[in-house]
């Protein structure tokens, strides 16, 4: 692998898929992930595409996670995605059964191979969350090279405390990707930015914060993804409550990673017709 230039383009384009998924519809969500990945690769020229927390099951799956059949569907879906997509790295949230129990996981997949897998460490169990009912916590960072640049991949709550981000930095990450299913409440956007700014201050690493979009019972996932550089400046924002594919290009500036928005490349995602056709059929 060629070393990174001290200054210049790192040659890496990352698409952030702020999309609306359907809780329980694993095969439908997998199809939406495949379609979005193809658009990111072919229309945006992305090298990698990032999907939200538990994208395969939707969020929150709640007691569906207690059904063994769900995990078979998830395994099948991951295999299908691995077989189908080539030429782009995919970062996908999903539940993962392992020896220690069930994890809230993220897989990094490229060309049919699993490059890395991470497990969520901090499981929120307050307010609308009850992740401890289903999951066991991970303990290790997930750092993987995408286009020769090591990235730390974290899940949602893990960015709200310093530990996982610092772990990832110590393991060599040059920037962070945080995948989320973060529900909206008044003032949440400001809270998110403050938390991210704290992590940036502690680690010196830019952060790509991707959030889910859509309504699920009384929860509203408002999207509003954002990209924050190593100075704590928000360089790019996703729309609120709208599906979108945002494209970020990574530059190297004085040896550090600087994310740059590719504003002209922002695709509106239209949810696949599975919902509307179902309405007509019923």
């Amino acid at each position: 692998m060629s070393p990174l230039p001290v200054n210049g383009s790192a040659g890496l384009r990352i698409a952030m898929a702020q999309i609306n998924l359907l809780v329980g519809d694993v095969s439908g969500n997998a199809q939406q992930i495949v379609d979005t990945a193809l658009r990111a690769r072919d229309e945006l020229g992305a090298d990698a595409v990032v999907f939200p927390e538990l994208a395969l099951t939707g969020y929150p799956p709640e007691d569906l996670l207690l059904r063994p059949g769900l995990h078979l569907h998830v395994l099948e879906a991951i295999e299908r995605i691995k077989r189908t997509i080539r030429g782009i790295t995919m970062i996908i949230g999903h539940p993962q059964q392992a020896l220690g129990g069930l994890y809230n996981a993220v897989s990094v997949i490229r060309d049919g191979e699993l490059l890395a897998r991470g497990f969520k460490q901090h499981l929120p169990n307050y307010s609308v969350f009850d992740e401890k009912r289903y999951f066991v916590p991970g303990i290790d960072p997930c750092v993987v090279e995408i286009g020769s640049i090591p990235v730390g991949v974290t899940i949602c709550e893990d960015i709200w405390t310093p530990g996982p981000a610092q772990q990832a930095r110590d393991a060599g990450a040059r920037y962070l990707i945080n995948i989320n299913a973060s529900p909206f409440h008044t003032g949440k956007g400001v809270e998110r930015e403050e938390v991210l700014r704290d992590r940036v201050r502690e680690t010196g690493l830019p952060i790509l914060y991707l959030n889910l979009v859509g309504g699920q019972d009384e929860l509203v996932f408002d999207g509003a993804s954002l990209v924050m550089d190593d100075g704590g400046v928000v360089t790019q924002r996703g729309a609120a409550c709208t599906e979108e594919l945002l494209l970020v290009e990574l530059d190297v500036v004085d040896g550090g990673i600087r994310p740059r928005p590719v504003e002209c490349a922002r695709l509106a995602c239209v949810t696949t017709s599975r919902r509307t056709t179902s309405t007509v059929q019923s």
Binding site: N20, L22, G215, Q216, R275, T279
Partner: peptide, 8 residues
């Protein structure tokens, strides 16, 4: 909208 459409 999502609650209405996702529940058909």
């Amino acid at each position: 909208r999502d609650y209405i459409e996702k529940n058909h």
